[in-house]
Each structure stands twice: as C-alpha cells, then as structure tokens.
Design a protein around this nucleic acid. Structure first.
Length: 906
DNA sequence: CTCGCGTACGCGAAT
C-alpha cells in the first residue's frame, strides 16, 4: 500500500499523551495524483516528525505501507512500524552523498563544487577497488595489481609517483583482501557480486555497492580503522545498499508469490533487507601490532536494524528536500564538529568567498556582488540540469517496454545468443539486435539487463560491437542480454559545477575583470601577415596573437573558421605559447587537428577516450595507461593539447596549464562549459557563431542557453572579428541568411563560389531536372498534413525531389535531407535509405551539394523548435549548389521570418 | 578515496 501526493500543509510537531506515555507527532496534508486528488492527512510519529523541519508545501511525498485506522468515519494514515516516508522520490540521491551528508551536510555541498582534484589516496583507492573486483573474479593477485597499476599510469605519473611504489602500496591492501577471502568462513558456495549498480525507485536513491555477498553488502575501505566498530558513515553507506537490496528482495518475493498463486503476506522491503553489513578496512593489515594498536582485523561486521535503515531514509529525505529549493547547507543541520574536520579550510574559504553562513565560519574576502550573483545563478542552472538527468533515470521504470522501444535511449527486445568468460574474469555477452536505432554507440557505458534494468538482472557494461546482426557488451557478471539503456551520467553536471567553482573562487580577481565588465579586453598591435588572401581571416589571427585577455572570432557558415583556427594555433605556437585546443564535440576537436595536420603541424597530443577520438586521430591520442613518467611527460610537455571541454573539466587536465586556450564551436557551449577550458589558460580565443544553434541543455533554464561567446561579443564587439567571406554557398543560397542573420555582411569569397550551379557536378545535366527545381533555391508545397511530428505526404514529396536530382545525375552522397523532428527523419529514412537524413541540430557542422529541407508543420508553426530562428539559419546554410524547401506555405507564412524565407525561395 | 566528532537502536499512538 502506498500513498503519494503533493504536500499542501505541514503542521508544527506537537507532543501528545498516549496510552504508552508522551509521543511526538506531526500532521502532513497531501493531495494525491500529483496534487489533483482529495486532500488526505498523514500523521508522522516519533523520529519522522523531523521531516517537518524541511518539508514544504509543493514537495512530493510518498508514504509506503502506512498504518490505516478509521476515526469518526474517516480513514486516517500514520507512519510507524515498517512504514517509510520519502520526500521528493523523483530526486535520486547518490549513496556517497548520503555518506557525505552524515559526516557533515556542508561536506556534501563542497564535494559538488570541487570534486575534480587529483589526489594520491583517491588514485590508490581506485586501484585497490579494481584489484578487489579482480580477486572476486578469481584472478591472480600479482597479475591484477600489475594490470590495474598500469591502467592508472597517467594519474600516477601526474602525481609524481612511480609504478613500483604504487604497486607496493596496493600489494599490502590486496594481501589483506586475499587473506580475508581465503579464510575458512568463505566457501565455494559463497555467492559474490562485485560492483553492483542499484537504482531505487521506492527510495529515490542510487549507488554502486563494491560487492554483495550472499545478498549482503560488503564495502571496501582503503583506510585503517583500529576500533572494534566500523565508522558510522561507512555503516550508513553499507546500510543504504542494504535498503535497496531489501527493495529488490521484496520485489522478487512478491513476484514469486504471484507466480505461486498465493496472494499471501510478503515481506516489506525493510523486513527483506539483509541484516548484516561488512566493512573491509584493508590498511589494518599493514598497521604494526602494538599494545595500543586496537582491533587490527580488516573485516568488521555490523548488524543492520530497521532503525538504521530508516535513519538512512530520513537522511536521504533531508538531502532531497534541500535540493528541492537548491539551498546551501550550513553545517548546523547535523552535529558536525568543525574543529576535527579535514575540510575546514576549504569550507571556510568557500563560505568566505561566497559570503555564506557556515558553522565553521568564514575566512578571506568575499568575491564582488556581481560574481556572487553569477555563481548562484549558474549553480542553480547546473543543478536544474542534474534534475533533468534524474528524469532520465525515472524513465527506466516509468516507461513501458513499448515506450522504451520508441525512445532512442534504449535498445530493447534483444535476443541473447551467447556469452563467454574472458581471461580477466569479465564476461562478453552477445545478442541479436532488432535493427532499431538509438543514440548508443560503440564504446559507450550502458546498462545491460535481462529486460528490466531496475528490478531485474542488470550490470553496467561497455559496448564493444554494435552492428545490425550482433551486439557485444562486456560486463563483470553474466546475464541474458535482452536490453541496453543509456546510463544517465551526472559527470557533465559535476564538471560544469567544478569549472564554475574554479573560475570564480580560485582565479585571481584580475583574471575575472574582463569577464565581469570591469575592464576592457586589451590587445597588442600585431602587423604580421598570417593569411594573405582573406582580410578578415588575417585579422582574426592578428587579434588572437595580440590578445592579452581574449579574442572572439565570429565564423558564419562556410567562412573557413577551422582553417583560420589552425593558422592561428600555429602562429601562437611560433611565439612560444603552449596552446590548449578545445571544442564542445569530439568531432570538432578532430576536425581542428585535421586542419593543423593539413597545414603541416603535427606536434599535438589528443586527450580523450578511445571511442571518442576519430580513427585517423588515434595516433595523437595520449596513452593513459602504462609507464607513469612517460604518460605524464607526454602530456606535460606537448606544445598543443587537444581535448573536448568535458575532458578539460576532468582530473587529468586540471593538472595542466596553458598560455592560450583556443575554443571552437564556442557558440554551442554554456558559460561554465567554456570556463572548463579557459580557466586552464592565461588567455583565450573563442571561435564560433552565435547565429547558429545555442548550447543544448536538458532543462529549459535560459541561463545556460546563452553562450559566453555571445555574451562577450555583445559586450565587446571590438574584441571580435567576423569572417565575412564564405566558400560554401552559391550567391542565391546565401542571400537570405546573409540578410536575415549577418546584417548583409556575408558574401561569397569568389565569383566561382557565387556562380556555382548543380550542373558543375560531373555528369549532371540541368535539362534533366523538372523546371521548378532548376533555380538554386526552390520551394515545394506538397499540401500535406502534420500528424504528430511527421508529415507523410511531405515525406513523399521530399523523396520525389531527391529522386529528381538523382535522375539528373547527382550522386546520393551529395544530397542531404534535413527535418526539424526525429520522427520525420525516421519517416524520410524509410523512403531514402542511401541519402543522409538528419535533424537540423545534428546537421550543424556539415554541408552537401544539394539540401532538401522538410518543415513538417501545417496549419500553424507550433512548438519551441520553430521559435529559434537560428535553426533556419543552420538548415539553409548547409547547401552549396541547390536548396529545396518543402513545406506548407500558409503555415510558414504565419511567422514573419519564415514568411520572408518563403517569399525568397519562391 | 582519506582523516576527525556525533549520529540509529522495539512497539504503538492523539483528536
């Protein structure tokens, strides 16, 4: 039984006399059905009354297994016994966050701000954890140590350690684990799972247990603990896993009861939770035994009672409630004792700089008001992004298998065809696909499951092969591979938060002056000629080289942005600068390297994952495993380092510094995303086009959709230059975009560019084309009708247009079809299997000789997709020689900009 | 991932 609704009233707790003595209670009124139902009152007893401290009207509340009682003809609900209350169940709290909050609520907050530091205990801990997993899978200790130390080569090198030293440290821990595993208490029949990913719908919680043995959580800690009892926060972490394991157990028991046909009593999830947790303190084995050394056994068991389980739920609730209004914890929320805290300095510095209330007090001078306002605005916006990621988790259980099949974040209905245990104890799982499309790519981390990623058999794994016939995934444990889901990751949000922290709280004030309009950007005059046949490109290079703070290069479609960027990087290198080359996407980073290569420059180190980096750029990729000195040396001495902005926000790049950061696609980057790269350097150059698509964010928060590039170019037009000669489009095609988006400044670079025609392509004859398609730009109104996000009649018309070009001799490879919606893209793909069909957003960055655009809409232009005119700019400027617009002229005419577009095209 | 202090602890209930 569960009751769920929106809180409409929370009464103050009061003490009442009961037949058993005095008790505290608190009454909460909720409206079920997301606030639409009749108000119901729930009485929270005892410790649950603390919920009143943070529960506010408007929050969602779930009450599980409440006691029901009739009073004066009304059903009343109360929370006692095995019932639990969950605040904002859709907010997924991570178990490690519960752990941090228990230590100190403010530590939970600080972890979010500055999580990306590289520290030896952290690297060592990760290696020990990996070795632990290997040992559970039956691998030899020495082999596991060697391999895992090698894997961590770069991090070890960046910390200035040697592989032998780390291997020696890790060996002590590994021996302790091995000794414990070999104790007689463990038998062949022991059931182990390592790295078990748990996602809880019921409690709004997620996490990864290091190991689960006979259904009970085992947590590995690479520290020492010579007390008899495990540390409290360690117990809390293990208990949180126990809570979620109990939920799974209760689910499978009730499924079993249904199968057996007895509707009989099943256990509540709290009852079904394992009653013992184990903490393994591996450093204990290395502590010298003396009179005072205490209890040196590495393994410490503790019992998990319902009180501890519910304490975890209440702690989780306090976090979810605080996140509901994006508050900042002060440390007073729990009885933290600051004088013992290792984070006290950081805590005081952050509260000092942001002028926050904190139990530890403040130190240092607050950053100016405008910076604080900026910090708070962006912090909030990034947290909104985090909640959007959480919504993706919720879809794992909210969507029916049919809905999931239609979602591009999953591949369902796979047919398992085999599994093999690999040499390292991992499993290779194979399945046959259904040919459905999804955004899952080879190399991605995914949730592999037997069909249900939340309550079924599920493992995190890596996609090794993804072809129509065969899907191959590697995981730690075997399972029947029937479904793959994109694993919603918070890493991007974490890194944006880190970038914001570093940029505002750790940079000296002078560096921030230009970002906050306190000083105009300065330039040194440069008279050297870098590019002699294009005035604006040359000027862009001069600005970049002469910039003392930053320079902005505005590059409309086809203006040779990447060429200029490469030339500029070479000019900076020639001056002796160490350059960071970055962009939002891997594709743009690789394109920039390619342009450098074309200009004969190859002293480049590319940082990124193997799957992210294009095949022909792998030769520049930094090997992150192997000899630590070599790995770190290669990165540290490279003249040009290329990486995506997300990688710049990671630990490896945080150790690096540069003279200049050159950032491409800057118009598609959020401000914190840009800062992730620019805070690593003294100066920066942003290259982009704010008249093309803005940053993609999941939440609809406007704070993040305006790029730093756009803000700076508006504030300091003199710090920028626009590349005004385009090498892509015929005169007729570029005219509308130039007028509408670039003040008429954009013009063809040469007469040949301006005059290009479709019959310039070999074997194409204009005479073969129907009359209405002979002009460089044409408009076709097929008189179709929109159903959902598709328009089948329009798709037919597009196919007909494409067919006409094909018949006139245009190769399929030279034709691109663009539509605003994925659904229409799918509709078009069915008709046009050999032509590139994609959404506007995904076509950005590429071009074709012939582009056909399908607008889908009939009647009126509805939906946000049409509101952003920059999307038209992108769609129309992909074409070189011919552009055909297919749509409903009346619908398009309802909007002035689209209307002018139709007039121009006809 | 480390280091430090404190933290939970049965059942049932009033108007």
């Amino acid at each position: 039984m569960q009751l769920r609704g929106v809180v409409v009233d929370v009464e103050a707790p009061k003490t009442v006399n009961t037949q058993y003595g005095e008790s505290e209670l608190c009454e909460v009124t909720v409206r079920p059905d997301r606030g639409a139902g009749e108000p119901t009152t729930v009485t929270l007893w005892g410790k649950w009354t603390e919920t009143a401290d943070y529960l506010d009207p408007g929050m969602e509340l779930a009450v599980y297994d409440p006691d029901e009682r009739e009073y004066q003809g009304e059903t009343q609900y109360s929370v006692g016994g095995d019932s639990t209350v969950v605040v904002e169940p859709d907010f997924l709290v991570d178990v490690t966050d519960v752990r941090a909050w228990v230590q100190c609520p403010r530590m939970y907050y600080l972890r979010k701000l500055d999580g990306a530091e590289l520290a030896y205990p952290l690297v060592k801990g990760t290696v020990v954890h990996e070795v632990f997993g290997d040992l559970l899978r039956g691998r030899d200790v020495e082999t596991a140590i060697d391999e895992q130390v090698e894997q961590a080569g770069l991090d070890i090198g960046l910390l200035g350690r040697t592989a032998d030293e780390v291997a020696g440290d890790v060996r002590d821990h590994a021996k302790a684990i091995e000794g414990w595993l070999n104790q007689g208490t463990l038998t062949e029949s022991d059931q182990w799972r390592s790295e078990m990913t748990l996602i809880s719908e019921r409690y709004g919680m997620k996490g990864r247990a290091d190991a689960v043995r006979r259904g009970m959580p085992v947590e590995l800690k690479t520290g020492k603990n010579t007390k008899r009892e495990p540390r409290f926060q360690d117990k809390i972490q293990a208990t949180a896993y126990a809570l979620m394991l109990g939920e799974r157990e209760a689910n499978s028991l009730s499924a079993g009861a249904v199968m057996a046909g007895d509707g009989g009593a099943t256990q509540t999830p709290i009852d079904a939770a394992p009653d013992t947790g184990t903490l393994l303190y591996t450093k204990n084995a290395a502590v010298e035994r003396t009179e005072e050394s205490g209890d040196l056994s590495p393994a410490k068991e503790f019992s998990i009672g319902s009180g501890l389980l519910k304490y975890v739920v209440r702690t989780r609730n306090a976090i979810a409630a605080m996140e509901h209004d994006t508050g900042v914890p002060t440390g007073y929320e729990a009885n933290a004792k600051c004088e013992y805290c290792f984070e006290q300095d950081t805590c005081m510095a952050v509260s000092g700089r942001l002028d926050q209330e904190s139990k530890a007090g403040q130190v240092g001078v607050a950053i100016p008001d405008e910076e604080r306002e900026y910090f708070e605005r962006f912090y909030r916006a990034i947290e909104a992004e985090r909640r959007a990621v959480h919504r993706e988790y919720a879809k794992l259980w909210e969507q029916t298998p049919e809905e999931r099949a239609d979602d591009d974040r999953a591949l369902v209905n796979l047919e398992p065809i085999g599994r093999t245990e690999l040499d390292d104890g991992q499993w290779e799982l194979r399945a046959e696909g259904t040919g459905a499309v999804s955004k899952i790519r080879e190399g991605d981390y995914v949730m592999a499951s037997d069909g249900d990623p939340v309550t079924g058999d599920a493992e995190l794994g890596r996609v090794r092969r993804l072809s129509e016939g065969e899907i191959v995934v590697t995981t730690d444990e075997p399972l029947d591979l029937r479904r793959l889901d994109v694993y919603p990751s918070e890493i991007t949000t974490d890194r944006l938060q880190n970038a914001l922290h570093d940029a505002l709280l750790t940079q000296p004030p002078e560096r921030k002056d230009v970002l906050f309009g306190r000083r105009e950007p300065a330039f040194t005059e440069v008279s050297e000629t870098f590019i002699d046949n294009n005035e604006s490109q040359n000027e862009a290079c001069r600005l970049a080289v002469g910039a003392e703070d930053f320079a902005l290069v505005h590059g409309p479609p086809g203006t040779g942005k990447t060429y200029t960027l490469a030339r500029m990087v070479r000019a900076l290198v020639a001056r002796g600068d160490r350059v960071l080359l970055s962009a939002f996407t891997n594709r743009a980073v690789d394109n920039a390297i390619e342009a450098l290569e074309d200009q004969g420059y190859t002293d480049i180190v590319r940082v990124g994952t193997e799957s992210g980096v294009r095949e022909d750029m792998q030769k520049y990729r930094l090997e992150q495993s192997g000899d630590p000195d070599a790995c770190a040396g290669t990165l540290g001495t490279a003249q040009v380092v290329a990486a995506t902005t997300a990688t710049c926000g990671g630990t490896a790049m945080q150790s690096q510094s540069f003279d200049v950061a050159v950032v491409d696609e800057a118009g598609q980057l959020t401000e914190p995303g840009t800062l992730a790269a620019t805070t690593l350097s003294d100066r920066f150059v942003l290259v982009g086009d704010h008249q093309q698509l803005p940053p993609v964010v999941q939440s609809d928060d406007e704070t993040l959709t305006r790029s730093l590039f756009e803000r700076l170019i508006d504030a300091h037009p003199d710090a920028g230059v626009m590349l005004d000669r385009q090498y892509r489009m015929a005169q007729r095609i570029q005219a509308f975009a130039s007028r509408e988006f670039y003040d008429g400044q954009l013009r063809p670079a040469t007469g040949a560019v301006a005059a290009q025609r479709i019959d310039d392509l070999g074997g194409v004859s204009m005479g073969e084309l129907p009359e209405h398609l002979r002009d460089g730009v044409s408009f076709v109104d097929p008189d179709g009708s929109q159903t959902g996000n598709t328009n089948p009649a329009e798709a037919d018309a597009v196919a007909e247009v494409v067919g006409a070009y094909r018949e006139a001799g245009v190769p399929a490879d030279d034709i691109g079809v663009i539509a605003p919606f994925r659904a229409q893209v799918a509709e078009l793909n069915r008709r046009l299997p050999d032509v590139a069909v994609d959404t506007v957003d995904r076509f950005q960055g590429s071009s074709k000789e012939v582009i056909v655009v399908s607008f889908v809409a009939t009647g009126a232009l509805e939906g946000p997709i049409f509101e952003d005119y920059r999307r038209i700019n992108v769609a129309l400027t992909r074409a070189k020689k011919a552009l055909v617009l297919v749509g409903d002229a009346d619908a398009l005419g309802t909007d002035p900009v689209y209307g002018r577009m139709v007039e121009w095209a006809r």
